[in-house]
Design a protein around this nucleic acid. Structure first.
Lengths: 161, 161
DNA sequence: TATTGTTATACTCTATAACTATA
DNA sequence: TATAGTTATAGAGTATAACAATA
């Protein structure tokens, strides 16, 4: 039982949003997701990077290395648009393109030490912004939201052509 | 808190997404919201309209009439970009601009009968798409997600300048 | 034939600056 | 001065078509 949830708090009146739009989960997802992305992008301007770059670095931090096709799928960026993203990161020495062993068509994109350090600073900044944005939710509620969105992610990706 | 990993199912192996990105609620929100918006936009192509137009019509359906400034805030579109949106809707006879009683600076944008009928068809189509996208969630889970996002909406809008 | 990476292109979305007419 | 609407414009995001090298 989290504090103060009497079923319908309704919050305040000023940030009023019509019930017809609030009733649409699709609208809520797009809207909240859009605002989240906007804040995220705003934070990354300090590094002159965009969300796609951050996503690539995060994936590489965990996987060590990945092909551009994999990066595109995992980060949610089209392979055509990923080229310039990797170009920029490579130009700054944050990642390197290496030949993929066993398949000369592929690159093996890998995080450099400099990239790992820079990513650490970016994570700290973005985590702070995220925490502020989610401050209206309790830890339990954040966990619940996380669980629901995690299950939704594979489902919404299914339609990707 | 990266310590809570044991209580999550995460059995969806094929559409694998790195834990480092899944752990970020901001990333999940942006990503799922983006996919939701993409599907929504795809559905609206049958009407040659975009999500912003749908949002305006939905707001007007509930409020009857609103100024462009109000529409911009409620739908989540910048006032500058809303001009062309209302222009298109007005050009198709779905809404009308009327003088605002008491303030000659404002317009009172109102839904026409044709707009109301067209919106009904759009809602049916978008609801169907939304239902398919959310099919992995139970009714209770959808309600929970809806509640969490509804509380998050006013919070994320707070940073709007 | 299918896949990986790539370029060029176009269209949408969003943000910055500045103007007008009213308040 | 402040606000509602507007215009022009530039940047970022995304989508379409086509291609070379390799599997």
């Amino acid at each position: 039982m989290p504090s103060g949830d009497a079923d319908l708090p309704m919050d305040e009146a000023p940030p009023f949003v019509p019930a017809s739009l609030r009733a649409s989960l699709g609208f809520l997802l797009s809207r909240v997701g859009g605002e989240s992305r906007r804040r995220f992008a705003q934070t990354l301007t300090a590094w002159d990077l965009r969300p796609a770059h951050y996503g690539v670095l995060m994936v590489l931090l965990e996987l060590g290395a990945a092909s551009q096709r994999e990066l595109a799928t995992l980060v949610g960026v089209d392979p055509r648009n990923l080229v310039a993203v990797v170009d920029l990161l490579e130009g700054r020495g944050l990642v390197v393109r290496e030949p993929h062993p066993g398949d000369r068509r592929r690159y093996s994109v890998r995080l450099t030490d400099a990239g790992r350090e820079e990513l650490g600073r970016m994570r700290a900044a973005s985590d702070a912004v995220e925490g502020e944005m989610l401050s209206v939710l309790s830890d339990a509620e954040r966990a619940a939201l996380h669980g629901l969105l995690s299950r939704l992610l594979p489902a919404v990706r299914h339609a990707a052509k």
